[in-house]
């Protein structure tokens, strides 16, 4: 029990500090700061519809965050989650719109596989450039984000565009490809339970398999891992591709379960938020479920806060930035660095 407390003490402190700082901001700008924060934290539970929307928003965070955890554990900084999410979403929409006559169980399956493959491809090339040539993966994955968003914009305003809809929106996918809802929650897609299952599976793979142990060894010291016979380079590259596949899958599940079409602005910045969520969970797949649920609460609540009060929803973006900064300055980590360096 004390072990758990030690593990969550830092992240919980950072979260509370960020919320407190955010409250000071709200106090300064709002006529009714208490109502603002009540909406931010509790409006997601006010009705079944709100709650379903909340669960839907947690799904991409868990999946992309899991990918972040996997790549960071393997020693690669994949900060291209947003681009991989978009690659997956557009591939899923393209399959759904392009192959409408596939029989029902095959169509969503093909679309989901396409989304994972697209995301994996979009993470693979920065990983390969890093491992083969030493090209900095932080810069290449960030560049990849911009390129992916431009490419999806080209497709969704071109071949995939819905001529009847306003803006950058694709045609509707055939209903045979839509994912079912969670029983009892009509608007909540089964994407969230899938994401939670994958996170548990991710924990098993990372901490209870030989491959995961080798990966973590490679993440802390690639040359050492190679020297003791782990085929580290290949494993790290697969982890990178897998990380992209998870982000791509998030895009696919979003299109099939929530949007039923591709919309260019469907993500409120899930990629960088998922990075925050993963860091907050200290790159632990199970902790990630909890931090994603907390973060989705803020993300979803901010929309209700903006409607009910005079505080804009971008407060959450400010909180995200504060949280990342607070996370990096944990006193414990500073001590550890001082000892090892």
């Amino acid at each position: 029990m004390t072990g758990l407390w030690t593990a969550i003490r830092g992240p919980a402190g950072a979260l509370l500090a960020a919320l407190l700082l955010g409250f000071l901001v709200v106090l300064a700008v709002s006529d009714d700061p208490l109502l603002s924060y009540r909406q931010l934290l509790f409006a997601s539970f006010a009705s079944g519809a709100n709650f379903a929307l909340y669960l839907n928003r947690a799904m991409p965070l868990i999946l992309i965050g899991l990918g972040v955890a996997l790549s960071f554990r393997a020693g690669l900084f994949n900060v291209g989650g947003e681009g991989q999410l978009y690659a997956g979403a557009i591939a899923c929409a393209a399959v759904g719109i392009g192959l409408p006559h596939l029989p029902a169980p095959l169509l969503p399956l093909a679309a989901v596989i396409a989304s994972a493959l697209a995301g994996a491809a979009w993470a693979w090339w920065p990983g390969a450039l890093k491992l083969w040539l030493g090209v900095d993966e932080v810069v290449t994955t960030l560049m990849g984000n911009f390129v992916a968003l431009l490419a999806t914009n080209f497709l969704v305003t071109g071949v995939l565009r819905d001529p009847a809809a306003y803006g950058a929106t694709s045609r509707l996918l055939p209903a045979s490809s839509w994912l079912p809802a969670i029983p009892g929650l009509p608007n909540a897609t089964i994407g969230l339970p899938v994401a939670v299952l994958l996170a548990v599976l991710g924990w098993v793979v990372l901490f209870r398999t030989v491959w995961g142990a080798g990966l973590r060894a490679a993440g802390s010291n690639l040359r050492f891992a190679e020297a003791v016979g782990i085929r580290a380079r290949r494993d790290v590259l697969s982890a990178m591709a897998l990380s992209g596949a998870l982000a791509g899958l998030a895009g696919g599940l979003y299109v099939l379960g929530i949007g039923h079409r591709f919309e260019q602005n469907f993500s409120p910045g899930f990629g960088l938020m998922a990075l925050t969520v993963a860091l907050l969970a200290r790159l632990h797949p199970l902790g990630l479920i909890a931090t994603s649920l907390i973060f989705a609460l803020l993300l979803n609540g901010a929309a209700y806060m903006q409607i009910a009060t005079d505080v804009p929803r971008s407060l959450v973006d400010v909180l995200t930035g504060l949280l990342v900064l607070l996370m990096t300055v944990e006193p414990g980590r500073r001590f550890r660095r001082a000892v090892t360096s």
């Binding site: 901001v25 900060v79 960088l272 990075l275 925050t276 804009p312 971008s314 407060l315 959450v316 973006d317 400010v318 909180l319 995200t320 930035g321 504060l322 949280l323 990342v324 900064l325 996370m327 990096t328």
Partner: peptide, 13 residues
């Protein structure tokens, strides 16, 4: 990246 998030969120706010 935290600074970038703070800047993009802060400017929007």
């Amino acid at each position: 990246l935290g600074i970038n998030l703070l800047a993009s969120g802060g400017t929007l706010f």
